[in-house]
């Protein structure tokens, strides 16, 4: 199993290097930091712009491979992601924002998966009865809404609640109340409350996807020979379902987790922007509008690493769940 995971990890490392280079090249080609500086008032001289660009290692007159070489060397040797277009440290900004995003991604993905797997299994067992039909309708509606729309609906609901009651029932701006007094408990409660809506926006989508998928794998398992064997040796239907059926039916969810994480990442970027979280997603959108190559590449790196980490987690989960792949 260790060998298998090590090989996967090696493959991911190769993918990561190639992907990051391509992202760097793409961002360098598509964005125009030169125009950003030239648009400044008063307009700086061409030489000054050039100097500035070279200093930031984003001068489009330097070959892109050379720029990437400098960038990669700094990253590998010093862990330095370069300077932003405002000549501040990308690392600092990265460090500030990464925990904001990870909090959302982690809680959102795990919650969505847990709810989805439980709901899907329940739905399958109660096939065509009320709980199944209700959950089916709910997940269909959820699947038909882009995450940003779910987020907007939730936010509008919170605004309506605020307007109706005259006070902020559930916070919908930012990830903490600025300048909140009180102890650790109060801070944690404040964090949790701020997490509620954004996490829900992400988790609802996960709930819908996972539950549909889990329902169908569970239905496949319902007709399987080994479930019949489990019953034949004296387990009741429900215990056989839980112990033998569900255990096998969750295996494909690990693959699902990897794919779903992609969608989740996108959704998180939008959700951050809508709820005014200063996370990686918001930074990305801002960086593109400011032609900030290094910041854009940094966010891409973050995305690639989290997606691959999710993929690796899925592999590990699969190997842990299914003895047949541990060869």
């Amino acid at each position: 199993m260790i060998g298998y995971l090590a090989r996967r990890l090696g493959y991911y490392a190769v993918l990561l290097v190639v992907a990051v280079f391509l992202a760097y090249a793409l961002a360098s080609a598509a964005l125009g930091p030169r125009t950003y500086f030239e648009a400044k008032q008063p307009r700086p001289s061409a030489a000054a712009v050039d100097r500035q660009l070279t200093a930031l290692n984003i001068n489009d007159r330097t070959p892109v491979t050379t720029r990437f070489g400098v960038w990669a060397e700094d990253l590998v040797l010093h862990g330095d992601l370069g300077r932003t277009i405002h000549d501040t440290s990308v690392n600092e900004e990265f460090g500030r924002r990464i925990w904001v995003s990870l909090r959302l991604l982690l809680v959102g993905s795990l919650l969505g998966m847990a709810l989805g797997v439980a709901g899907g299994a329940w739905s399958a067992v109660k096939q065509y009865r009320l709980p199944d039909r209700a959950l089916t309708i709910l997940s269909f509606v959820l699947l038909s809404m882009p995450v940003f729309l779910v987020a907007l609906f939730l936010k509008n609901g919170a605004i309506a609640a605020k307007d109706a009651t005259g006070r902020e029932v559930i916070p919908f701006v930012g990830y903490e109340t600025p300048g909140l007094a009180g102890g650790v408990g109060a801070h944690l409660a404040d964090w949790g409350l701020h997490l509620l809506l954004p996490t829900l926006a992400l988790a609802l989508g996960g709930l819908a996807t996972y539950s549909r998928y889990q329902r169908s794998t569970m239905l496949d398992v319902l007709g399987s020979d080994y479930l019949r064997t489990a019953e034949a040796k004296g387990l009741t239907r429900n215990r056989a379902l839980l112990k033998h059926g569900l255990r096998t039916a969750v295996i494909p969810m690990s693959t699902m987790f990897a794919y779903n994480f992609l969608a989740l990442f996108t959704g998180a970027a939008f959700t951050e922007t809508i709820f005014a979280w200063h996370g990686m997603g918001e930074w990305f959108i801002q960086a593109i509008n400011e032609q900030d190559v290094n910041a854009v590449v940094a966010v891409n790196l973050f995305a690639a690493v989290t997606v691959l980490a999710a993929g690796f987690l899925a592999d590990a989960l699969h190997a842990a769940l299914d003895p047949r792949v541990r060869y």
Binding site: D225, R228, A230, E231, G234, R247, T248, I251, D322
Partner: peptide, 28 residues
């Protein structure tokens, strides 16, 4: 009822199935 039957299955009447690969739960 299922509960009563379960007590008989495997203890008084046991079954051997055709395809032994799919008849064992693959993960245990």
């Amino acid at each position: 009822p299922d509960k009563e039957l379960a007590r008989i299955r495997g203890s008084r009447i046991a079954m051997v199935f055709q395809d032994p690969l799919s008849a064992f739960t693959p993960v245990y």
